[in-house]
């Protein structure tokens, strides 16, 4: 029996298997974008108390930087056993003019990724338990199509 596919962070991204999107918010007055949506993080100081509307963020961006981790991080990271190195990308979205982090998609060799490369959002497995597969957003080299 296949496991349930569950978002590891509820409401942070759409569960569209083909073209997932990160879910952010946009200030009604400022037009500024924010991510993640569910937390009291940043604000545009010209409109600190503005209403915000939910918005799907661009699926594509360019690599701002990247880091490949060769050591197992501490909890609460759910590390596969045995530990495998993994890469975290910082990706700049052109329209939103913001950088958003995310792991590099499974199976992509980090040596093939350079700063400035176009990438796009996909879903990938963060960890699994007996019943569920917990999914998170990841970045992979862009395959074409619209952003």
């Amino acid at each position: 029996m296949s496991k349930n596919r569950v978002a590891a962070a509820e409401g942070w991204f759409t569960m569209d298997a083909d073209e997932p999107r990160l879910l952010g918010t946009r200030g009604i007055d400022s037009g500024s974008y924010f991510f993640p949506p569910s937390m009291a993080t940043s604000a545009n100081p010209a409109h600190p108390f503005e209403e915000r509307e939910p918005v799907e963020l661009s699926r594509r961006g360019r690599v701002w930087s990247l880091a490949t981790n060769h050591y197992q991080p501490p909890e609460p990271y759910m590390s596969p056993e045995p530990f495998e190195p993994y890469t975290v990308l910082a990706v700049e979205l052109e329209e939103e003019k913001m950088v958003i982090l995310g792991q590099l998609a499974d199976g992509v060799a980090p040596e093939t990724v350079k700063v400035g490369d176009p990438v796009e959002l996909v879903l990938g497995t963060l960890y699994e338990d007996d019943d569920n597969e917990y999914l998170v957003w990841k970045w992979q080299p862009a395959t074409g199509g619209k952003g």
């Binding site: 590891a8 962070a9 937390m39 701002w64 930087s65 609460p76 982090l101 400035g116 998170v136």
Partner: peptide, 30 residues
């Protein structure tokens, strides 16, 4: 602690402190 970004960055990304240091280092190289 699902509303604490410091907890969530480890949980969802494995973004340790050295991850951020490496971002800045890679930028200098580039």
């Amino acid at each position: 602690r699902g509303d604490d970004p410091d907890w969530l960055r480890f949980r969802l990304l494995g973004a340790t402190n050295p991850t951020y240091f490496a971002f800045y280092a890679r930028r200098r190289m580039d």
